[in-house]
Design a protein around this nucleic acid. Structure first.
Length: 506
RNA sequence: GGUCCAUUCGUCUAUCGGUUAGGACGCCAGGUUUUCAUCCUGGAAAGAGGAGUUCGAUUCUCCUAUGGACUACCA
C-alpha cells in the first residue's frame, strides 16, 4: 500500500518549547517536505495538571519564527481535526471501550496511595500479569461488584492487559530492529481516573491512526514505550497501517552528563528556548534565541547538523538545501552534546551574508533605543566596515559606538606607546591637510593624499597613523582608519584630532 | 536494581573490511591588516578496553567498561 507521507509534531503545552523539541519538529518538517508529505501540529494536552496557559501559542510562534511550516493542525486547520487532544475525549472513549469489550484492557480501582504502598512494600513492584490477580480490578472482582462500584461513582482507571513473555519487535528507521520481552512492560494505564482523560499512549496511537500518520519521528526517550505502542496497534487491529518509527538521539548537556535542560542554559549562559519565555507560574524569564540576536536560519542550520549530516563537507545549508538532502538513515544514533560556540559561528556566517541595508535596519533599532539617529546611507556605510567582525547585530554597537560618540578619554597604554613629542605638531599639520581636501570619499583617494603628505615630509607612517586612530576612536582598534575618517567627515575628524591634541599631555 | 539504546580528535561528525582515519567549531602558531577583529595558511588533537571472524578490522560478532533514556493515573 502506497500511502501519502504524513508526519506530526506533537508537543504538550507544559511550558516553553525546548530546543531539542525544535530539532524534532525540524526533522519532521524536513522529512515531510522531502517526501512531498504533510506536516501536522497536534497538541497533546491530556495532562490537565501540567497545562500551562500560553504554551501552545508559544510553540506556534516559535516554529513560525524558525520557518517550520505546518500543513495541518492546531491553528492551521485540516480535515482530521480536532487537533487538540483535550477536544477528542469522546473519540478516545470509544476506543478504550472497544479494548474493554474485547478483553484487551480492564478496569482497575486501586487508589494511587494503595499502589504507592505496594511499591514500598514490594521491591520492584509492577502492575502486570504476575500481580494483577492480586489487585482490585475487573479481573479479580465479581462483575456485579464492578458494576456497582461504577454506579456508585467510584473512580477507576483502564489498564492495558499485556500478555507476558512475548517478544515484541519494533522496527526503528534509525536503529534497526529493537526486540523486547513483554514481561518487562507493566499494564499501562490507558485512561486516567484523576482527570478522566486518556494517557499519552492511548491518545497517541488513536490519533496517529485516525490522522493517517505514516512516520513517527520523535525523541529517543520514547523508545522504551514503543513496544507498548506496537501492542496497542495490534490490539486495535491496525498493524497493517502502523506508522514507521524513528527515534532521534537526544541533545545532551555541553559539559558533564545528561539531557540538556533549561537550567544548563541558565548556568552556562545560553538560551535553550527559541523565544524568550515568561513562565506564568513562577514569573521566571528565560532567554530565547530570537531575543539573543540569532537569525532563524542560523538556528536551523546549527540544529540540523546536531545529529544529522549529509556526508559531505558542506557546513552551511539553507532550509531548501536541507530539505533536498535530508534522510533519516543519515541521522546519528548517539546523543549530541550541545556546542553553543558553534552556534555563534553559524550566526556569524549568516550575518556576514546579510546585506548592509538589512543589517543597518536591524542595527537602527538598537541605536534608536540609545537615542541615536543617523542617515540610512551613513549607517549602511558604518555597518559595512564592521560586519565581518561580529556574530550578532547587538555586537555592532561595541564596534561602532565611536562613530556616534566622540572619545572622551584615550587608552592610556596606547598613549604611552604611540604619542611622542612631535605627535601634536604632526597632527596639527594633518588637520591642515584634511582641511584642504574637498571630497572625503572615496576613502582610497583620501588615503593617497594623506600618505603622500607623510612621504613628502618623511614622517614615520606608524607615528602618524596610530595617534590619528587614537584621536578618532580613543583606542587602537577598529576598521581601516581612512574608512573612519571618510565616514566621520571633515569637520568631525578635525574636531576630534584637535581635541586629542588639547587633551593628551605627555 | 531492571530493560533498552549508544560509544571515532575537547565538541559536532565523515568512513558503509584495505584511507597518511577526512571536515567543521574551539585551541595554538605564522601571514595579511602599521590597530583590533575578520580573513588566509599551517599545527596539535580521535577509533573505550579485551576476545573472536578475516589475508586484513574503526568498520562484523561477543564480553567488559562507560554514558544515556526509560522504569507515574507526565508527556
Amino acid at each position: 500500500m502506497n500511502r501519502k507521507v504524513r508526519v506530526r509534531f506533537a508537543p504538550s503545552p507544559t511550558g516553553a518549547l525546548h530546543i531539542g523539541g525544535v530539532r524534532t519538529a525540524l526533522y519532521n518538517y524536513l522529512f515531510a517536505r522531502k517526501q512531498g508529505g504533510d506536516m501536522i501540529l497536534r497538541i497533546e494536552d491530556t495532562d490537565s495538571n501540567r497545562f500551562v496557559p500560553g504554551a501552545e501559542e508559544y510553540i506556534i510562534e516559535s516554529l513560525s519564527w524558525l520557518g517550520i511550516k505546518f500543513d495541518e493542525g492546531v491553528s492551521f486547520g485540516g480535515k482530521y481535526g480536532p487537533y487538540r487532544q483535550s477536544e477528542r475525549k469522546d473519540i478516545y472513549r470509544q476506543y478504550v471501550d472497544e479494548l474493554l469489550k474485547n478483553d484487551l484492557a480492564y478496569i482497575a480501582f486501586d487508589k494511587p496511595e494503595e499502589l504507592e504502598a505496594k511499591r514500598t512494600e514490594i521491591n520492584n513492584f509492577q502492575y502486570d500479569a504476575s500481580t494483577r490477580m492480586s489487585m482490585k480490578n475487573s479481573l479479580t472482582l465479581p462483575a456485579e461488584e464492578v458494576k456497582q462500584k461504577i454506579a456508585n461513582g467510584e473512580v477507576y482507571v483502564v489498564r492495558m492487559k499485556i500478555m507476558p513473555n512475548e517478544e515484541i519487535k519494533v522496527n526503528d528507521l534509525i536503529r534497526g530492529e529493537v526486540i523486547i520481552n513483554s514481561s518487562i512492560l507493566d499494564d499501562k494505564v490507558l485512561w486516567k481516573s484523576a482527570d478522566g482523560l486518556p494517557t499519552y499512549h492511548l491518545a497517541n496511537i488513536v490519533d496517529d491512526h485516525l490522522m493517517e500518520v505514516t512516520h513517527v519521528i520523535r525523541g529517543e526517550e520514547w523508545l522504551p514505550s514503543a513496544p507498548l505502542h506496537v501492542l496497542l496497534y495490534r490490539a486495535f487491529g491496525w498493524l497493517d497501517t502502523m506508522p514507521q518509527f524513528a527515534h532521534l538521539p537526544l541533545l545532551l548537556k555541553p559539559e558533564g552528563n545528561g539531557k540538556l535542560s533549561k537550567r544548563d542554559g541558565d548556568r552556562l549562559g545560553f538560551p535553550v528556548f527559541p523565544l524568550e519565555w515568561h513562565d506564568p507560574k513562577t514569573g521566571d524569564v528565560s532567554s530565547g534565541y530570537r531575543e539573543s540576536g540569532y537569525f532563524p536560519e542560523a538556528v536551523i542550520n546549527f540544529l540540523a547538523l546536531l545529529g544529522w549530516n549529509p556526508g559531505t563537507e558542506q557546513e552551511i545549508f539553507s532550509m531548501e538545501e536541507l530539505i533536498q538532502l535530508f534522510s533519516l538513515d543519515r541521522v546519528s544514533k548517539s546523543g549530541a552534546k550541545f556546542d553553543y560556540e558553534k552556534g555563534k559561528w553559524f550566526n556569524h556566517q549568516y550575518l556576514v551574508e546579510k546585506s548592509n541595508q538589512e543589517l543597518a535596519g536591524l542595527f537602527n533599532v538598537i541605536l534608536k533605543e540609545k537615542g541615536i539617529t543617523t542617515s540610512e546611507a551613513k549607517l549602511e556605510q558604518i555597518v559595512s566596515t564592521v560586519k565581518e567582525r561580529v556574530s550578532f547585530v547587538k555586537e555592532l554597537w561595541n564596534e561602532t559606538s565611536f562613530f556616534f560618540i566622540a572619545p572622551e578619554s584615550y587608552d592610556e597604554k596606547a598613549v604611552q606607546k604611540r604619542w611622542k613629542e612631535d605627535t601634536s605638531a604632526q597632527l596639527t599639520e594633518l588637520t591642515g591637510i584634511l582641511n584642504n581636501i574637498t571630497d572625503f570619499s572615496p576613502a582610497e583617494k583620501l588615503e593617497e593624499t594623506v600618505k603622500n603628505w607623510i612621504n613628502e615630509k618623511g614622517y614615520n607612517i606608524g607615528a602618524v597613523m596610530n595617534p590619528l586612530r587614537l584621536s578618532l576612536v580613543g583606542e587602537l582598534k577598529g576598521p581601516h582608519v581612512f574608512d573612519i575618517v571618510a565616514i566621520l567627515g571633515k569637520e568631525e575628524s578635525i574636531k576630534r584630532i584637535q581635541k586629542a591634541i588639547e587633551t593628551i599631555k605627555i
